[in-house]
């Protein structure tokens, strides 16, 4: 057993876990943050993607003890109160989901992708970057549309902020 301390969605949390506990199980079972899903359990599907220290990782392929001391953001931590995060809003607007199982991972991957491409994204890049996220409804078309729309809104927002600052 080890003591794990994390900052999850801005809140300091800790718990004693078996060393073999995966980060995704710590989030779901100890913290009751069940928005992060376990799909394949073999590091391929991406339903479990969360951000650890600002980077998208597969939480089914990381031990909770490995992450101890880190800052974690899950799907529950994206929205600002009742206001959806721009990526969440774009998925809603573009119907970027069917059954919704892969959606938390898709949105966390998309948020990370947009952060790494602040000047905008094109369709080919989005599709290549979605390599590690599988939608078994095969609804990729609207997912890609949603990510492109969110990228546009967010790069516009950051540009107008920069303009105001200047």
């Amino acid at each position: 057993m080890s003591e794990v301390t994390l900052v999850v969605n801005g809140r300091k949390v800790s718990g004693a876990v078996e060393d073999r506990t995966l980060l995704v199980h710590f989030l779901r079972e100890n913290l009751n943050l069940t928005g992060t899903h376990v799909g394949c359990d073999t590091s391929q599907c991406g339903a479990c993607v969360v951000h650890v220290d600002g980077k998208a990782v597969k939480s089914c392929t990381m031990l909770a003890v490995q992450a101890s001391g880190s800052t974690v953001t899950t799907i529950e931590g994206l929205a600002n109160g009742a206001d959806l995060h721009p990526v969440q809003a774009a998925f809603k607007e573009n119907h970027g989901l069917q059954c919704g199982f892969c959606t938390p991972g898709m949105i966390m991957t998309a948020t990370d992708m947009i952060r790494r491409h602040p000047d905008g994204l094109d369709e080919a890049t989005v599709r290549a970057e979605l390599e590690g996220n599988i939608c078994r409804c095969t609804g990729y078309h609207n997912i890609v549309k949603a990510i492109l729309a969110a990228s546009k809104t967010m790069s516009k927002a950051s540009k107008s902020k920069a303009n105001k600052a200047a």
Binding site: S43, G46, A56, V57, K58, M62, E129, E131, G132, N133
Partner: peptide
């Protein structure tokens, strides 16, 4: 190599 999340780790 792999996918973006794998490349991060």
């Amino acid at each position: 190599i792999g996918d973006p999340a794998v490349r991060h780790r």
